[in-house]
Each structure stands twice: as structure tokens, then as C-alpha cells.
Simulated assay, not measured.
Amino acid sequence: MDFDAYSHALAALALWAVLVSVLGMVSTRGRSPENRCDCGKPKRDYANPVYRAERAFMNAVEVSGPFVAATVAAVLTGAAPFVVNLLASLFIVARVAMAFVHIRTENQSARSACFAAGLLCILALAVMAVVAAF
């Protein structure tokens, strides 16, 4: 199979790996004995940017499996390349925005909107993969 038509989706997968790795590094900054639980994680406090950075990283880790699975399935089943590329790219944009909003603000509405946009991209990719498979 020729994967050239899916170059944006494949690039989105690579960018996702970079973004999750960067969030992992950012999530360890600023931890101190005073703001950590016994497990080493920051204490729950959305007013604390250290806690929000940890949550941004963990949220990215939690959504990684579905994004990778849906995108790879859509590519391998030959779903419409333009739409697969568009959805994978929009997912990255939504998740970069979510990381920024999550770490830099306490704006729950904006964070939820970014999350929903990314989730809709994943669901659309998964539906396209299932339809293309049959």
C-alpha cells in the first residue's frame, strides 16, 4: 500500500509522539516536597500550574491509544485520505490548544472544548476506519 496520500496523518502521529514527550518533561518541573503526595505526584489543586501540567500530560497519555489506533486503522483500511489527514491534523491542533489552556489557565470551558474537538476527531477516524473495512 502506498502511504503518500496519508502524509499529514502520519506526520500527526509523529507530532503527537513529540507533544506527549514534551508534556512529560514539562510535567516534572516545579515539583517540591510541599506540593507532592506520598506517591510523588502533585497534590490535587487546579490553582497550581504544577498540578495542571501533570494533568495535561496524563490526559495526553490517556488519549494516545485511541488516537493512534483510530488513525492507523483509518490509514490501513484506506479511508478517504483527505478526511483522514484533516482529522488527524485537527486533533493535533486541538490537543496543542488544550495543553496550552490546561497548563496556563484554569479555564475549564476552553479545556473541555479542546478535549471535545479532539475526541470528535478520534471518533470520526474510528468510524471511517470501520466503514472502510467493510
Rank of each mutant, 00 (worst) to 15 (best):
D2I: 04
D2V: 04
D2A: 11
F3I: 10
F3Q: 05
F3C: 03
D4W: 06
Y6F: 12
A9E: 01
A9G: 02
L10Y: 02
L10K: 08
A11T: 14
A12D: 04
L13K: 02
L13G: 03
A14T: 02
L15Q: 07
W16E: 09
W16L: 10
W16Y: 09
A17K: 10
V18M: 10
L19K: 12
L19M: 13
S21I: 09
S21G: 13
V22H: 06
L23D: 00
G24W: 08
G24S: 12
S27G: 07
S27F: 04
R29E: 02
R29H: 01
G30K: 00
G30I: 14
R31H: 00
P33W: 12
P33K: 13
P33R: 12
P33M: 11
E34P: 00
N35S: 04
N35I: 07
R36N: 06
C37F: 03
C39M: 00
G40C: 05
G40I: 10
P42V: 04
P42F: 01
A47P: 02
N48I: 04
N48Y: 01
P49N: 09
V50A: 03
V50E: 00
V50C: 04
R52V: 08
A53R: 14
R55C: 11
A56Q: 14
M58C: 08
N59A: 10
N59M: 04
A60K: 06
A60M: 08
V61G: 09
V61F: 12
E62D: 08
S64H: 14
S64R: 14
P66E: 06
P66W: 10
V68A: 12
V72D: 02
A74K: 07
A74D: 03
V75D: 07
V75R: 06
L76K: 03
T77R: 00
G78V: 03
G78D: 03
A79P: 06
A79Q: 12
A80E: 15
F82V: 09
N85D: 11
L86G: 08
L87V: 03
A88L: 07
S89K: 00
L90K: 07
F91K: 01
F91H: 03
I92K: 04
I92Q: 02
I92G: 02
A94V: 08
R95Y: 11
V96I: 15
A97F: 07
A99P: 11
F100G: 14
V101I: 15
V101E: 15
I103S: 15
R104V: 15
R104N: 15
E106Q: 14
N107E: 11
Q108A: 15
Q108N: 13
S109I: 15
R111P: 08
R111Q: 15
R111S: 15
S112P: 01
S112M: 10
A117D: 13
A117M: 10
A117V: 13
G118Q: 11
I122M: 08
I122F: 01
L123S: 10
L123P: 06
A124V: 07
A124I: 06
L125F: 02
L125Y: 01
A126L: 13
A126K: 05
A126T: 07
A126F: 05
A126I: 04
V127L: 14
M128E: 12
A129E: 04
A129Q: 04
V130C: 05
V130T: 06
A133Y: 00
